[in-house]
Design a protein around this nucleic acid. Structure first.
Lengths: 196, 196
DNA sequence: CCTACCGATCGGTAGG
DNA sequence: CCTACCGATCGGTAGG
């Protein structure tokens, strides 16, 4: 059935996946709906059977990713009480996500600001929530005398961005698995906060 | 002479500065030349007396920044032989630049890929050169038994992106000076590589 | 799923 | 520095 010129019915998931790839590569404003249509071998108007519009695609991508990050964080740290254990688990989950959902991470980081209001503010608020949760762990560790860092805020920024960068260079066919990278970045994070 | 409705003659530098601000805020593809013109209180065609075109603005920004990064690196590490000293100096210069040239850093990181060929490849090559130089210091330190890190490549990525992130949150009117931030990030870098 | 088409806006040029 | 204007392309709609 998979012969040349075949006609695969387009689905919402396929449109979203194509948007994800193109937004990640060319940016939201650098991608035309005609390119998404072309990659799916349909005409642009046909896309409107599977999406609300260009903004809708971006919102779906961003919302799904930021809520996923928050869910990851909650699941990873659930039940843990030691600040070291919590930081390790939180960073590991965050780094792992950036290796396994590279396109999503790139789009969220570059294009969340291209969302129309009120969605932009909503999504930025959700991102801040994760930011604060990570910082709280570091502050907790400092207070408990387990971490040694001058500014928890700076350490938190540094750790976050370090993880985000994984999305930009990780390759599935590279020399390291996502797990290995996540482990190594977790070690970096523990070193940054001076864990002992 | 600075009364309302005044007519300040537009210069190339003014066009570039306005482009820098708008590209950093809205992205290259998200910025229209009409917005740059509006911010300078002239009509769009007038811009062409001071630039080659939109691509020319982007190239000027990117080229100036990446060569500046390379020059910073050379000046900072010149004459140093100890890997610890070299890494400290290189990271300090890189972090400092991201605090003091925020807009440039944001544009280079987000929009270098929007450059037309052959400039895109040229600029990416220059960025790689800095990348390799930083990594070489780490490898040197590991070989000399001064640093302790599993993968110099991963550590190098982590340190670079950590510095880049400074451009995204640093404020001149914030609680920390650029120097203080650079110092703290340098310490983070030394911790990441396990300097001893 | 398509063709036909919309108004808006884009970067850029002509010509003064 | 401007007005006038260019072709191209954008996201999206009508209507089937």
């Amino acid at each position: 059935m998979t012969r040349t010129g075949e006609r695969t019915t387009v689905t919402s998931a396929a449109v979203l996946d194509s948007a994800l790839t193109l937004f990640a590569e060319l940016g939201y404003h650098g991608t035309a709906l005609s390119q998404i249509a072309e990659s799916l071998e349909v005409r642009t108007p046909s896309l409107y059977n599977h999406m609300r519009g260009k903004q809708g695609l971006l919102l779906t991508i961003v919302r799904g990713t930021v809520t996923g990050v928050l869910d990851d964080f909650a699941a990873a740290t659930d039940g843990l009480t030691d600040p070291g254990d919590k930081l390790r688990a939180a960073v590991r989950a965050y780094a792992l996500r950036h290796a396994s959902h590279r396109r999503e991470a790139i789009v969220v980081n570059r294009d969340t600001s291209s969302l129309d209001e009120p969605h932009r503010s909503e999504m930025q608020e959700l991102r801040r929530r994760h930011d604060h949760a990570l910082r709280a762990i570091i502050e907790e560790g400092v207070t408990a005398g387990r971490f040694s860092v001058d500014s928890p805020a700076l350490a938190s920024f540094a750790i976050r961005e370090m993880c985000v960068s994984v999305a930009r260079w990780f390759r599935d066919d590279g020399p390291r698995t996502a797990d290995q990278v996540a482990d190594e970045y977790t070690d970096f994070a523990m070193r940054i906060v001076g864990s002992r």
